[in-house]
Design a protein around this nucleic acid. Structure first.
Lengths: 357, 357
DNA sequence: ACCTAGAGTGAATGCGCTTTCATTCACGCT
DNA sequence: AGCGTGAATGAAAGCGCATTCACTCTAGGT
């Protein structure tokens, strides 16, 4: 590991110019076969690995796409039980990686931390040709700056009204419809009267949309909503879900007969908290989530939820980015909406069919 | 999106030199506060995003770790059912990303394709400070060249005997022990007499080790092995697993009473093939896998398997890389072995406890 | 008033590659 | 013999940043 060999070393050793060495890698056909062999042999002997940095600098493109996602990792989750840890973001990663590879791109991923000049986000942004942002992971201001320079697609709904991020492409799911349908089911089929909604309403357009769907269904059915009407939480983790459930149970007045959560992780946390309190689900209160993460099927009772096509979201995001990068599409911001499906399981009172894979 | 602003633009606009601009990002404390503000303001106005490439070139390090993994994606798997698609590699990705982030690194991932001067692997290798390779994904020769220049850790067992990759660090799991224990269970507790083993024996030291464990247990119990003794497959996918099962069923002579697969995916494929043939599992034949992917628990009958600590493997790999990179550790190649655990479920004849999460 | 240390800053160089642009070479023509 | 042509190659100019070294200013000490 003395010093890393460069084009110069390879060029010297094979008796050609560095331009030719470069061509051997970039456009092999433009070099005579015999020369090419000589160069490749020298490269092999020297242990030459082209510097992606230098290449990117000179050619102004990296061949890498990025993905920033929130780290909702739950210390509460069994770390032994790996599959329980597979989250929403993992499936999007898979979708993006697949699609990126099809287009010849690699994928750079990083859960976002705080902002600041030296945040991971900034690092990612500077190393990719374009990238996707899951939910509102990245500070708006930072995103605004970055998106002026390279394509960014949000994996979230666009915010209502004036938003400095209007000009970005969005991939979203039918949050409102999904939550409305699920809520209707609770009200109509399970006789729910005092549902409570729990989520970070103001942080995310998606959660906001879900909440609208929820309220909609309640209004239609003439049902009163328990809570303020919605319970806010700090992060959408299991721990926060448990905390919210506890809060709602201890609040004076009648306990809600349904805990409608904005995501699965919180719902799972609530399931445990309610069990701890000796409350039976779904007999004493029903619980629902949103997302359809693997864990939702594994918990007892299995969680009724709204499934998002996560892998597909990743793929769509990639395709969009690639189109933008290729210059094939330079039109107005795209806002693509993907369908969701309500999954009825035991936690709302529906028996879980054995055959429903 | 006219032209991307650079340090020069920011410098000019804020009336400083490019050196100062650079310092604002690299070592903020070495710049007077007022100057820093001025520079940051200019950067914001211009939409300046530091070029990771230029930075990497100049500083000879990228702050990125890489991971190459095989794409065992199964077209056979329900693509609708996202969680079924979560594989071994996804969990390792999660583990690595977490650990990498803790150390301030981002993660670049790419499923490996064919080799060649312009393979994705080469691209990844040129863009990272160090990387991990899952199983024998990358051609040995290529890996040999690359590993001369930067740290590489294999997520697989070292090959027996002479291996040009001896000098690499390895993270492996107790393949042999795990498979031996599982096989013993089959022989001792379920009275298996003619087990067959299916896997890509020669491709992977891990599968080889598993096979040894299998043979070991058989020998100890004085049991004859069905097959040649092992069935080879092309790739370890569901499709190949189904094919292998079909083959073993149609082969002249007695049908095996146990199909011991080298991974879960093949086992799942076999489960479906056997069902198609009207054979009951575990009554007519038992089936086992290896890995403990989420899907293994979801199929019916649930799959008896050997669980690997996948997230942890990713973490260990990252830690090792970081140590090597920091120069803290420059010693002999490490070969770390992680424990596995046998998971008994319905496919071997063990009833699946409801409470077993 | 003079000197020194240290903080803050600028000029200049190079990181390893891609990419024109120019040059050479070997042919097949007229 | 002279010339045009296309293929193969080389020379040289950056790409955008980090970093070294030298330099300018304070502020403190004598």
């Amino acid at each position: 590991m003395t010093v890393t060999p460069t084009v110069y070393d390879v060029a010297e050793r094979s008796g050609v110019s560095i331009a030719t060495v470069s061509r051997v890698y970039r456009t092999p056909d433009s070099v005579r076969a015999s020369t090419r062999e000589r160069v490749l042999a020298a490269a092999r002997e020297l242990g030459y690995v082209p510097s992606g940095n230098a290449r990117g600098l000179a050619s102004r493109s990296t061949g890498v796409l990025g993905l920033c996602f929130p780290d909702y990792a739950d210390p509460a989750a069994d770390t032994d039980d790996d599959d329980a840890a597979m989250l929403y973001s993992d499936q999007i990663i898979r979708g993006m990686e697949r699609a990126a590879r099809r287009h010849g791109y690699a994928l750079l991923i990083a859960a976002s931390l705080q902002g600041g000049p030296e945040s991971l986000v900034a690092k990612v942004a500077g190393r990719v040709d374009g990238f996707a942002v899951l939910a509102r992971t990245v500070p708006t201001e930072e995103l605004e700056v970055i998106s002026r320079r390279r394509p960014v697609v949000m994996l979230a709904g666009p915010r209502e009204g004036t938003d400095s991020l209007d000009h970005l492409d969005h991939i979203e799911v039918a949050n409102e419809d999904g939550q409305r349908e699920l809520t209707r089911h609770l009200l109509a089929d399970h006789g729910i009267r005092r549902p409570a909604y729990i989520g970070m309403i103001e942080e995310s357009p998606d959660v906001e949309a879900r909440f609208r769907g929820f309220l909609d269904a309640c209004r239609d059915a003439g049902v009163e909503v328990a809570g303020e009407p919605a319970v806010r939480v700090g992060m959408m983790t299991q721990a926060e879900g448990a905390r919210a459930a506890a809060l709602l149970c201890e609040r004076p007045g009648e306990r809600p007969d349904a805990f409608v959560f904005a995501n699965d992780q919180m719902a799972v946390g609530a399931l445990r908290e309610l069990e701890r309190r000796g409350l039976r689900v779904p007999e004493d209160a029903v619980v629902t989530g949103f997302d359809g993460i693997p864990l939702s099927r594994l918990v007892r009772p299995a969680l009724t939820t709204v499934r998002q096509p996560m892998v597909r979201m990743g793929e769509e995001a990639t395709d969009l980015l690639v189109q933008r990068l290729s210059g094939r599409y330079t039109g107005a911001p795209v806002s693509r909406m993907l369908p969701v499906s309500v999954v009825r399981r035991a936690s709302c009172g529906c028996a879980e069919g054995r055959t429903q894979s």
